[in-house]
Design a binder for these strands. Structure first.
Lengths: 219, 219
DNA sequence: AACCGCTTGTGAACGCAGGAACAAAGTCCC
DNA sequence: GGGACTTTGTTCCTGCGTTCACAAGCGGTT
């Protein structure tokens, strides 16, 4: 009996939980104390029944007839996602996109902290971005070891992304978020997630041309 | 009989087609003329059978026993995705992320062209980024009308994203790519895609803590 | 105390995506 | 020219995700 995950939560649900967490934080800031699944679902842009099912994965915490306590639910989701404790991340590649990521405030408020910025360009090394000094990518292994970073973010040009990925994996990083437009291969045990901005645009463009193929009016 | 889409292609397939397009371009640049489904699948990080199924959606163009012609397949995918003709995009919000997007070379090579950059900050208006001059967001409607842009990209702070979305939709933009960390609501007929960078990170972090809950060795 | 409305949580059905296996077809070799 | 190998295109099937619908439970009210 292998039983790989005793209480597995589907990936799609995890992604939505992160959205709920953001909405709940917004509600809490607005002074709201309770929320129903319908309101929360419409604010998150999902189906109410699906939202309740998502929430049921982490043990129900709602009160029937009333709804959910905003603070308690936010706390519980944060705990399940592991967002309560800070996670150390290293960022490789500080071009336009990398710099944007290093400055992005959304990470810090969600429990992610950049502890190392690395680049290969001499004119970028030594710069201070987001409160951190950019270091030489040659020090990658040393930085990962010193900071015990568990997450690596790749925002380098495509032609060096695989090499950086290999070095990150070898240095002990087990989770990698890749923004370079290449498909990375990593050893088993290392999770790689790929965000390709142009793919998103192309899907959008396809859907738009699909919607109005010729110019037919509604029958 | 409604029959909404005569020959619908699943969204997941469309997203992968965009990936195949990138890999094929890389192969073509490398001088390769033919490719098998196995090779292409491994380069794209997908299952060979799934790749063939994806390609079957656009009418088969492969030769049994040989594989696919790289140039022909690339051409066909580009035509289906509508990537052969250039699409005009407007970008609102030129902070760190917006500037990165405006400079991102990956868009231009895929048939997307920014024709308008808009921001509200006086010190950003008039700057030249990626060959374009940043204009006042007050001119949004005028820019959209003049350029006939069909795609809008939102990279503004969260608190003004909905307002920008409304104005883009009212100006005639039917496809919106949103990078602001809020769920946008748009009228029917307007497609909104949301890319939340911190959600990606949180999913990654959850998967990593899921893999090794406490520190158990392999039984 | 009992009733009623509201909301959660869960069970079942539907549709879709993913993967494996198989038939058709073309090429290479003998 | 024929056979065998390779590779595509398709079909089936399994599993997952999503949605609908209903029972269970709690608060407010009379």
């Amino acid at each position: 009996m292998i039983q790989p995950r005793p209480r597995s939560i589907p990936e799609a649900t995890v992604a939505r939980l992160a959205v709920y967490l953001r909405v709940l934080t917004s509600f809490a800031d607005g002074g709201r104390t309770t929320v129903s699944s319908g309101d929360l679902a419409s604010a998150a842009g999902v189906n109410p029944a699906g939202l309740r099912k998502d929430l049921s994965h982490l043990g129900s915490c709602g009160v029937r007839g009333v709804g959910y306590d905003v603070r308690a639910l936010r706390e519980r989701i944060a705990r399940v996602l592991g967002a309560e404790r800070s996670r150390a991340c290293v960022l490789v590649g500080l071009g336009n996109l990398g710099s944007a990521l290093a400055d992005y405030a959304g990470f810090g408020s969600r429990g992610f902290e950049f502890v190392g910025l690395l680049d290969a360009a001499p004119d970028r090394i030594g710069q201070c971005i987001g409160g951190l000094t950019v270091r030489d990518v040659a020090d990658l292994e040393a930085v990962v070891a010193a900071t015990e970073a568990s997450i690596g973010v790749i925002a380098t040009p495509a032609d060096v992304a695989q090499q950086v990925c290999d070095r990150l994996a070898a240095a002990g990083v087990r989770s990698i978020l890749n923004f370079a437009p290449v498909t990375l291969s990593a050893p088993a045990g290392v999770d790689v997630r790929h965000v390709d901005l142009s793919v998103e645009l192309q899907v959008l463009a396809f859907l738009s041309q699909q919607r109005v193929p010729v110019g037919e009016a509604s029958a």
